[in-house]
Design a protein around this nucleic acid. Sequence first.
DNA 1: GTATCTTCTGAAACGCGTTTCAGAGCAAGC
DNA 2: GCTTGCTCTGAAACGCGTTTCAGAAGATAC
Lengths: 319, 319
Amino acid sequence: MANIRDIAKYADVSVTTVSRVINDHPYVSKEKRDRVHAAMKELGYLRNQQALTLSTGKTQRVVVILPYMDHPYYSFFVDGIAKAALENQYRIVIWQTEYKLSEEQQALDLLKHREVDAAIILSHEMSFKEMVSYRAYGPIAVATVGAPKGISSIHVDHYASFVSGIHVLQQHGYEEIGIILSRSHSPSSLARQQAYFDEVASAREQWIWTGYLTSEDGIRLADEFLSQKERPRALFFSSDYVALGFLGEMQRRQLPIPETVAILGFDGNPIGKAFGLSTMLSPNETIGRQLFETALAEMQGASPQTTAMTVMYQTGTTL
Amino acid sequence: MANIRDIAKYADVSVTTVSRVINDHPYVSKEKRDRVHAAMKELGYLRNQQALTLSTGKTQRVVVILPYMDHPYYSFFVDGIAKAALENQYRIVIWQTEYKLSEEQQALDLLKHREVDAAIILSHEMSFKEMVSYRAYGPIAVATVGAPKGISSIHVDHYASFVSGIHVLQQHGYEEIGIILSRSHSPSSLARQQAYFDEVASAREQWIWTGYLTSEDGIRLADEFLSQKERPRALFFSSDYVALGFLGEMQRRQLPIPETVAILGFDGNPIGKAFGLSTMLSPNETIGRQLFETALAEMQGASPQTTAMTVMYQTGTTL
DNA sequence: GTATCTTCTGAAACGCGTTTCAGAGCAAGC
DNA sequence: GCTTGCTCTGAAACGCGTTTCAGAAGATAC
């Protein structure tokens, strides 16, 4: 495979001139430029991206760190990131962590070893304190709340969003409300619990179900829910998938929704529409785009920024 | 940031010796080895992955080419690929093409420019003829049927799978069957049509619906289906998501399933379980793993291989 | 005692683009 | 006529690990 020196020899110019032709530098005479182009064509020259990367110190890659690939929730973020990255000639490297700290560390080590220029983290187990220690090696943008100075954050304001979801339920006449959360100790779950206690008069501990992440978890929830003596009249989920699992299982048992219990989802996954799921629409693709864009801006010298996004009620038939 | 030469100077050894220590080469005296380790610790040495890549010619990266990130169908493949890749110290670069030929070409150009060591293609618009022209630059493994010599393929045998799905429907007493396909001209769709005509006595052109990819397409199908004079008694979908969209819309219209029409999906997406969707379970995660493993084997000198996988009926309540 | 290994070490070349710097030639400015 | 500035060119250094090759020292074999 021909390299730049082969081209230089073949075209009888210096490597500098070849490099200039490749990079469209103006100070090359038309004559030599043509000779170089001819030589490149003749020898089938392909620029070696690795050499370029080593030379410039820029990899044109960003690592996207997320717990699960096969959870549709993250796909929308990744879609937004991928689109923005492609538009800017960046490639994305995916790292699946399953919330294992060691995997998160390995993923961020890519930054240290200059395999990527920046990191985008969709959800994490790692403390922000530890995350900050990687900041020296490149920009980091997260989709979670509570990021300290130095780390960009484009996130859904889970407190405000849960408040507005609760208000939607209340406007529909539901006062006794339960909430379904994923990881109990995550910052977003804490914010949601806070909103719950602040806004729901009848809030009670046993109406908070934690550890529900997938549609299967939603199916499982049906038993847990029905076995309770005193049940809330509405359930506010933190994920459409869990809500759909629950909804499907209730339908299977021929328990009418919303009569048995009203259901409000969270995400706005298109599949929810098919089943009339009422939900809070979250602009995840947009967040993905902005995560990339803010990381890119930081690479170009901008300061880290924090942006909170809000969700919108999307009407359905489960309220 | 300290490089290998700084370490050499600090430890008063040659760069060769430092390199040997890094790579656990045996021929280094304990004394020098210790000095080098101390120097690396002292100066906070981090190996530059780019230099290593340029030097060895191996990137430890594989590009995964797929049409849509936000279509859950592909997530399971990617999950399998990601797991296998991580286990082997490979990183995956994602390239979303939306079935645009130019994007597919750009993605495969990564191979040419040595940004990745191999390519895994989940679905493509590009002809195999064109794809083969990239083979000289690295192994290519596809998840589609019909790959020529030189290109590895781990795929679902769509003909056999559709045949077995049709047999399931027939065993349940359905003779008048329609099929729902995604892209009309893709090899998998052609194989499915062939199976349909071969196995269904009452097969007819107007019972083949093409262009259905998402759950929204499934919703839209309800009108198309109901507006037909003569309707099949069962529908065999090529995607669970489309099937679920249709199922949800039928439920919304209070048209009982399977009395109005039986539904058989294809994939085995977990969300289907919540709604009792009968489906043909496809081992997509396993296919993902094998795609990576066969690509890895090829990088190590093995020959391309082709493996066809079969699907399994997963019982539900829509038949 | 000499031949043959084995262990250990480092200089230099290699992978391959980019960038800096110095210099040559020529035109415009005053 | 002399200075200034622009256009064009290429040698060499740089980014940073790995690998080849040559050689020295010590150990083992016969």
